[in-house]
Design a protein around this nucleic acid. Structure first.
Lengths: 341, 341
DNA sequence: TATCATCATCAAAACGTTTTGATGAGCTTT
DNA sequence: AAAGCTCATCAAAACGTTTTGATGATGATA
């Protein structure tokens, strides 16, 4: 095997010479876009095979204006921060989109940075933007370029943008809150993340509306997704002590739930007996913690499937739904919110 | 916001016209590869910004011969088959490579199919091939093209190919076998997968050598990675009944371990009391099964980190190690191989 | 003042395709 | 035998960059 790495790729010109025809004949013979005699076609095919011809994708894309590749931009910053725990969400998101793209035999590019001039720009026919921020600049930029965009979750500032695959939070969050209420909770605390995206905004809105409807005082606070294991207990401790401690906590970031459980234990509070605890995203951490923690599963796989489907439909010029597509997150009820009888 | 999707992108020519200079001056002003007067440079920058100029990546790559993108090819077929269980391995593999690439601000392309003519070929400066097969054709093709390749695990037929990040199985597999032996196992059965890659071959070789050294009769069988939940119990049942049943089973595919545990239970065999059970890859399934199953963690994250590092070093022309890089898998001892005292 | 270097800018070539209008050979029709 | 068709093939343009040799202006030197 020749491993010389400086090898110049075979061009269409060399194939043409070998087959004794013109460049355009080679192109037509291989693409079949114009009739070529059977004999010539065979000769060209043979020459191409012998030389190991592989058309230069850049030249082709430059000419045709399409690369056959789809970009993927993942907005949440924590995704790149990458603590081992946060990785599960990232991996499910990325992995399931990659799986779907492979199933459809279409190349997927992880776009590193849209704006950094040091980063090569990326040849994509369309782009999936996952979990955009409010007034997302990357999203706006792509739309401004006229590139076909499909979002996973919506830009909260532009909720009605078409070609979005969205999660329908209200019924699920209400079901969770009702469940907590059923279990006796009357003083619920919501700890949202600080990324300004739909996942943080929507459940918060639902929570506030629910409290108003129930006549309960809403209590909210922020807990940045970027916090470490060390920060969380410290920040949470004061919330758990004193006479006005909540009797239920809903925390957005699932990884923090077990830390809150520990902090509660340190105060002598038992879960679920003295404090109910639930998270707004699921993770192994939540599933295997003691006790296992009730969580909302965002069904990344389903989001990925629909988003990829939508993107490929758009690129192929097929009919696509006019408005956003809604999926329902799954509520996973576990021991952390189930009072023993 | 203008959402017209048929918008033609801004070219360097339009920037040049707007700034009142030639095309090449724009190129030089933006790239800084030749001195341009401060005034002109400012004018060009302004024009580019106003028009929202973004250089066409295909044209640039065609001219320069580099795209700034790295390809990723995942060989194992099960990866695309994608049962929910198999997904964890796939996601960790893909997710951690994507994470590393993002950290280095370099685009990553999932290559769907190297040979399918219906699939657009992919503009990559180098390619990471994960878990190649014995005599891997895709690997050979890439090497034949002279493309820089880094493999995660080696092609078992060409174990000494440089620029491979390999797992050092023997010490870990021996440690596992010794552990089983310590726990009293004398009749060990190895159930390998059917994908012909290093992960199936190497541990098998170590097992055979270990048996010979210990004077124990080796027993092996195959269990395809593509089997479903329904197939496995049926196939395993006969192995567990009869007087010559093994007292320890090492199964490659981690998802099958809990199924084997069930099949054993159906025969009245208890784990670990009557049968020791271990897997050659880790998964949540194995971690949370009852009892938790001893497994070898392939440390995909570490493999990814080294592979990406190696690839980027090669592409930047830096010094790279001459031979393969070895990492050691982690043995996770759990209850399934620990006899109660 | 003529000559020479320096500096900023320009024009043109090249990268490897696909596409399209033109060309010529071989038939059929008049 | 001339005219018209069809079919296969060809030549050339175009896609949007980067790169390089050429050009002209400006100021320094002889």
């Amino acid at each position: 095997m020749d491993t010389a790495s400086g090898k110049r790729p075979v061009t269409i010109r060399e194939v043409a010479e070998r087959a004794g025809v013109s460049i355009s004949t080679v192109s037509h013979a291989l693409s079949g876009r114009r009739p070529i005699s059977a004999a010539t076609k065979a000769r060209v095919r043979e020459a191409a095979a012998e030389l190991g011809y592989d058309p230069n994708p850049n030249a082709r894309s430059l000419r045709t204006g399409r690369s056959g590749l789809v970009g993927l931009i993942l907005r949440p910053r924590y995704a790149v921060a990458g603590t081992p725990d946060r990785a599960e969400t990232f991996n499910r998101l990325v992995g399931s989109i990659a799986t779907e793209m492979l199933r459809h035999k279409t190349g997927l590019i992880h776009v590193p940075d849209l704006h950094d001039p040091a980063v090569a720009s990326v040849p994509m026919d369309g782009c999936i933007v996952a979990h955009p921020y409010g007034g997302d600049t990357a999203l706006a930029e792509l739309l401004g370029r006229g590139l076909p965009v499909v979002t996973v979750e919506e830009d909260p500032e532009q909720p009605d943008l078409p070609w979005a695959v969205r999660l329908d939070y209200p019924p699920v969050v209400e079901a969770l809150l009702d469940h907590l209420h059923d279990q006796g909770a009357r003083d619920l605390l919501l700890l949202s993340g600080t990324e300004d995206n739909a996942w943080n905004r929507r459940p918060r809105e639902t929570y506030l509306a629910w409290c108003k409807r129930r006549g309960l005082p809403p209590r909210t606070a922020l807990l940045s997704e970027g916090l470490t294991q060390h920060d969380v207990p410290e920040l949470v401790q004061p919330l758990l002590s004193g006479p006005d401690r909540p009797d239920a906590i809903v925390v957005a970031t699932s990884d923090f739930a077990p830390l809150i459980a520990e902090a509660a234990a340190a105060q002598g509070l038992r879960i679920p007996d003295d404090l109910l605890l639930a998270a707004l995203t699921d993770s192994e951490h939540a599933r295997t913690s003691t006790p296992p923690i009730t969580a909302m599963d965002l069904t990344h796989e389903a989001l990925a499937e629909r988003a990829v489907e939508l993107m490929l439909a758009r690129l192929s010029g097929a009919e696509t739904p006019a408005g956003p597509v809604f999926l329902t997150p799954e509520l996973r009820l576990r021991e952390s919110t189930r009072r023993r009888d």
